[in-house]
Nucleic acid binder design. Structure first.
Lengths: 141, 141
DNA sequence: TTTTTACGGAAAATAATTATTGAATAGTTT
DNA sequence: AAACTATTCAATAATTATTTTCCGTAAAAA
């Protein structure tokens, strides 16, 4: 794990710094799909001099070397995900949380689009929005 | 058409203004999914006093009364679409154009996600990117 | 260790979008 | 038609996410 990001950074000519490791580790150990500000706030306690610009610059590098993907869930800011398998995301319009959608097969759907459009499809992003189970229950009360 | 937007605006308590009609008509008669700036540039010749803010506010109203949908195609600005059926979009990474994906059935896919996540799905955005047929040919040359 | 090079971080810059505001206009009542 | 009221237009200013600049400093190479 640690070895992986370290050597990946080095191989691509980037330096291995405490900030970069901290940002990646934080992202890899959460399921909350934070945006830049959430990451910044989370790390500020441990790294008091951490700046937002560092978060942005680091995310750009991590994206470039294929360690994180950038999520555009229709909000006013981007979220980040250290899980690199391309899976859909659902956002709850009530509480704002963003979750992964696992165990769903998108290949047939992608093929259909590829054939229908004649595009050479390189990738895709699927975003759903709705109300999560928890918030559905809250609404009833 | 014209009657439709006029009465829709009136019914919801919005005034019918030349700017609003012009913006909607421009959007309804293009397939290019413009963003606010493109709409603004297009209409400035005919409506010299048109401002970007007017475009944004008008789009907000049109969205509210259900005449346009807002596309978040992962770019740095929003695009708009007067076609209200919820269809996927493909963006060409070479030339940047955004096209509709028609004649594809998404219901089964949405149902599957709904059951898998237990979310009450209210909507979704499917966003593909790749290389359009025209740019594929250009690359060969 | 020394040298080289990239990095971190504060602050300023940028760009998309939103809010505010005063003048103009439409709608309504008299 | 005049007076009154409410709404809209569109310029300006404000806001917010993200990027860039710049320079002392830390990491990697020699």
């Amino acid at each position: 794990m640690e070895i992986c990001i370290t050597s990946l950074l080095r191989d691509k000519g980037f330096k291995v710094t405490p900030q970069r490791l901290a940002i990646y580790n934080m992202l890899a150990s959460t399921r909350s799909h934070p945006n830049a500000e959430m990451i910044f706030n989370e790390l500020q306690a441990m790294y008091p001099t951490m700046s937002l610009a560092t978060v942005y610059k680091t995310m750009e590098i991590l994206r470039e070397i294929g360690l994180v993907q950038v999520l555009n869930a229709g909000e006013d800011s981007f979220r980040y995900d250290a899980v690199m398998t391309n899976h859909p995301h659902v956002r709850c319009t009530e509480c704002g949380q963003v979750e992964d959608v696992h165990d769903i097969n998108i290949d047939a759907f992608v093929d259909e689009v590829s054939q229908g459009t004649k595009y050479q499809i390189m990738g895709q992003q699927f975003y759903f929005h709705g109300v999560c189970p928890t918030c559905q229950h809250k609404k009833i009360n």
